[in-house]
Design a protein around this nucleic acid. Structure first.
Lengths: 339, 339
DNA sequence: CTGAAAGCGCTAACAA
DNA sequence: TTGTTAGCGCTTTCAG
């Protein structure tokens, strides 16, 4: 089923059929109806492969993210889709599972379809990936993180700054014996940077992380519970007074554990997570957290791509740094008598 | 940057370059190295658009799902990816937000890229969408649901049966005053079918849903709480003894609410959800639920596509019905004295 | 093992 | 307003 079939069925040249189907140029209402009718009757679906080759225009935006299953990237997608839906552009998603070599492969695959732009999570890529991004000749937006050098544009937050901010808040509230709970993911650079910012501020205050726990795989909520139990038990003689989690899901697990055990939160121990996922609204206590601005990052990235597609000469290298807001909730409160 | 550039840089014909880059046919080791070298130096990325047009082979599988943000579809994707990763095929995802007209549009867009197969959620589609699926001439697998007539192949569970099974379990355990909590989504056919199966069994036992609550949008966990509070308050004179939720997330909210209020679960009231999401492992009580077999559905669907791509003449119309297993957990227990 | 010619289905550019 | 011509960058096919 090709344009030619529609052309023959309607008795109109292929070119005119093409014009009708794309709403391009002037076509008389009569031929227009004739063509549309024929196309509908035949069940014609245009071949974008041929169209794209002929016009060298592809209305696809490659979106490359580390994971689909942890609640944060679907929200980024929501923001992206929201903006792209107002344009002709369509997102196409690739998932890397936090593996650089996988990212490189996915990027290669996607670039081979000659998309109109790339939105890619993070600033850390293999040399080859950076080379591809640099040479692609299309707008590139690196998202989620602004601690580093983008290839082109970037939209995100400073995770180092986010870590610092939370550390200050915790110290200022009078907590001193702080534990850290996170993922076993050396390649989650954003978690790493938050951790670095966090420990940096602690160090300046003469403090250190007292103990830490790491997990991988499984139900994050359950892991949060288990890790919390483990870290608390391990430090019973000199108890911890604060637990900083690298994401809200494990923090929620920790919160549920503490409540189960009748531990006074935040009196006996304070808790904080990261991401401000919607989920935490349903918990028994409002968990302290920090908004990672996911929807807004998605929106801003999509806007940059859309603008650059409209206007290819303008706006290279734009960097947007969003400011994550802290939310103290009920689990991070100024202590009566700070040490 | 085209094949021609690589051809010129390496002094080998375009055709031979093409052969090397696709590992096709016999090429001497010497020219092979020469070509690969040139391609690498130039940073050549093949143009799949041209390749696909010339070969009329596209290694894309269209995956059309209603939503990305409710935990269940990412798991289906996991299953699909797991299988497709062993092949040349790549999934491309489109999201419909449970809107038939959106589904139709997304399907049209995807078919215009001439994918090798389509995996699409549900058996209910617009007439136009069904026509497109029927005429596409590629393997189609409708997933998640088997209560109805598939266009071609299908993999899923019977949601009617799932609803019936849970109803029987609840009744057999001695619960009689049953409330239902779900989503305001007339177009979520699977939830509707579960509900129908559920009420059907109730009716046979001379019972009816005593009261119900519906939500849309917002944090599902928080909504679960709110709805539970509402439905319990509304029925204080003649209290409900069981709450059946259309998904685990709102059920979890309900469970947390009940525990907060010191309500005895399952003594005073029983609870059950649906989906068996990983998340529920971290809750204070093991929630009764039913496995919706998401990963396995993804895997089976991908296997069907992969086989049919290998062997186009075989296997049309295969239907795989999975059997969801019930998990009683701690929130659905045989009552001491059934009425 | 290598190359030349033809064409995939569509659209840009120009002509009528 | 409509049609004609010439490719887009690759692969198929056939010839060497």
């Amino acid at each position: 089923m090709t344009l030619r079939d529609v052309s023959e069925a309607s008795g109109v040249s292929e070119m005119t059929v093409s014009r009708v189907l794309r709403n391009r140029g002037d076509v008389s209402e009569a031929t227009r109806t004739k063509v549309l009718e024929a196309a509908r009757e035949l069940g014609y679906v245009p071949n974008k492969i041929a169209g794209a080759l002929a016009s060298s225009r592809v209305n696809l935006v490659a979106v490359i993210i580390p994971s689909m299953s942890n609640m944060v990237f679907p929200e980024v997608m929501t923001g992206i889709t929201e903006i792209l839906d107002e344009t002709e552009l369509q997102p196409v998603v690739g998932v890397t599972h936090y593996k650089p070599e996988r990212e490189e492969a996915v990027l290669y695959q996607m670039l081979s379809w000659r998309p109109s732009g790339v939105i890619i999570a993070g600033l850390e890529h293999t040399e080859a990936a950076k080379a591809m991004l640099g040479a692609a000749g299309i707008p590139i937006v690196e998202i989620m993180d602004t601690d580093g050098e983008p290839v082109d544009s970037a939209v995100g937050i400073s995770h180092r700054r986010a870590g610092r901010k939370m550390a200050r808040e915790i110290i200022d509230s009078g907590y001193r014996r702080i534990g850290f709970l996170g993922t076993k993911m050396p390649l989650d650079h954003r978690a790493r940077k938050r951790f670095e910012g966090f420990t940096e501020v602690l160090a300046k205050a003469g403090l250190e992380i007292v103990d830490s726990e790491f997990y991988s795989g499984g139900s994050a909520l359950a892991k949060g519970r288990e890790m919390t139990e483990a870290i608390l038990k391990r430090n019973e003689e000199e108890p911890l007074d604060f637990l900083y989690y690298s994401n809200d899901m494990i923090a929620a697990g920790g919160l549920l554990y503490c409540l189960d055990k009748g531990i006074d939160v935040p009196g006996e121990i304070g808790l904080a997570g990261f991401n401000r996922i919607e989920f935490i609204d349903g918990l028994p206590r409002r968990l302290a957290t920090m908004d990672s601005c996911r929807i807004e990052i998605g929106r801003a990235a999509a806007r940059i791509i859309a603008q650059r597609v409209e206007n290819p000469q303008e706006g290279m290298g734009e960097v947007i740094t969003l400011e994550p807001s802290i939310e103290l909730g009920d689990t991070l409160k100024r202590r009566k008598k700070p040490l």
